[in-house]
Amino acid sequence: MTKSPPSIISAGDLRRLTPARVALGRSGASVPTDALLNFTLDHARARDAVHTPFDAAAIIDGLTALELQPVAVRSEATDRKTYLRRPDLGRQLDAQSRNALSALNNAPCDLAILIGDGLSSAAVHLHGLELARRLAIKFAGLGMTLGPVVVASGARVALADEMGQLLNARMSVMLIGERPGLSAPDSLGCYVTYGPRPGLTDAERNCVSNIHAAGLSYDEAAFKIGWLVREGLERKISGVSLKDESGNITPLLPA
C-alpha cells in the first residue's frame, strides 16, 4: 500500500500557529531587517514593562469601586533598582506595612487575595483588577470568606507568605506581574498557597500563568484558580501535592 507523502507546512502557516520567532527567513548570514527590528521592539517593550512605575493608587481605587477593602503595603525593596538587585528584600514586608497588617486584628478567613507588581507592573495595570473582580465573585459563590485585598509594591511571590499569615488566611491567592517575555510583556501570574507563612518554598505553591490577551483568558484563569482553591482548602494542601486536574472538568463560562 502506497503511503501518502507528508503534508508540507509553509513558513506562513508556522508563523500563524505561534507568536514564537520561527520561520523568520534569512538575509545572507543574518535574519531579515524586519525580523531584527521586530525583535528590537519586543525587547524594548519587555524592558519597559520591568521598569514601568507601579500605580498602586489606581489599583486601590479600582478595588474600592469593587467594594473589596483594599490595603496598600510595600516590601523592604525601597526602589526598583534595589528590587531588581535584591530579590530577598522583595520577599519581606517593611516594618510599617507589617505593623499595619497586624493592627487590622484580622479574623480568620478562607482566602486573602494579594496583588503585587512583580516584574511587570504593566501586566497588573492591564489585568489585575478584572481578574480580581472575577475571582471575588467566584469565591463568594463558593461560600468562601475573604480578608482584605492587599496591594503590594516591590513584591516577589514569596511576599504572599508573610501577608497571608498576618491576614490570618487559610490560603493566599497572589496575582503578580510575570517576568516579561519577548512575545508577552504583560503576562500576569497567580500563585495559590495553602497555609501561607514565611519559610515556604515554591514547591508548596500552585501557579496559573500566562494570563494575557494572547494567552489564558480571565474566565479560563478564574476557573483554574477557583478549582485549585476549592480543592486545596478541602484537602489542606497546595503545590506539588495538588495536581491541577481542572482540565478534566468543562468550565461554565463566563465566570
Rank of each mutant, 00 (worst) to 15 (best):
L166P: 02
A203K: 11
G181D: 04
L167F: 06
A158S: 15
A184H: 13
L200A: 02
V157G: 07
S209A: 15
A155S: 14
V173H: 06
M171W: 06
S183C: 03
M163N: 00
D161C: 08
A155V: 07
N206T: 08
S153K: 14
V192W: 08
S183F: 12
A160D: 05
L167C: 15
P185K: 04
L216I: 14
G215M: 11
I211Q: 12
M174G: 01
R179S: 13
I176L: 12
R156H: 13
L200G: 02
A184L: 08
S172K: 00
V173Q: 04
V173I: 15
G154Q: 05
M163Q: 10
S209R: 12
A203E: 15
C207P: 00
P198R: 13
R197P: 03
L166N: 10
N210G: 10
L216K: 00
C207T: 04
R197I: 07
N210E: 11
T201H: 10
D202V: 03
Y191V: 02
S187W: 09
P196M: 11
A155F: 15
L216V: 14
A158L: 15
L216W: 01
G215S: 11
S187Q: 13
A169L: 09
R205N: 10
G189E: 12
G154V: 02
D161I: 05
R197W: 06
L200V: 00
P185E: 11
R156C: 13
L200C: 05
L182V: 15
G164D: 13
G177R: 04
L159W: 01
T193L: 07
A155H: 11
L166S: 10
A169T: 07
D202M: 04
V192M: 10
D186S: 08
A160L: 04
A158P: 03
P180A: 10
A184K: 03
R205L: 09
G177T: 10
M174W: 01
S209K: 04
L188N: 09
L188W: 12
E204F: 00
L200Y: 02
S153F: 00
P180K: 08
Q165Y: 09
E178S: 05
G199I: 11
P196W: 06
Y194F: 15
S183D: 15
A213T: 14
N210L: 08
C207L: 06
T201Y: 06
A203G: 00
E178Y: 06
V157E: 09
P198G: 09
A160N: 04
A152T: 12
M163V: 15
G181F: 09
V157Q: 14
G195T: 03
I176T: 06
A203H: 13
T201C: 05
H212S: 05
M163W: 03
R170I: 00
I176G: 02
Q165D: 14
G181E: 10
S209I: 06
L167M: 10
L175Q: 06
S172D: 02
P196K: 07
L200I: 06
D186T: 07
A213R: 13
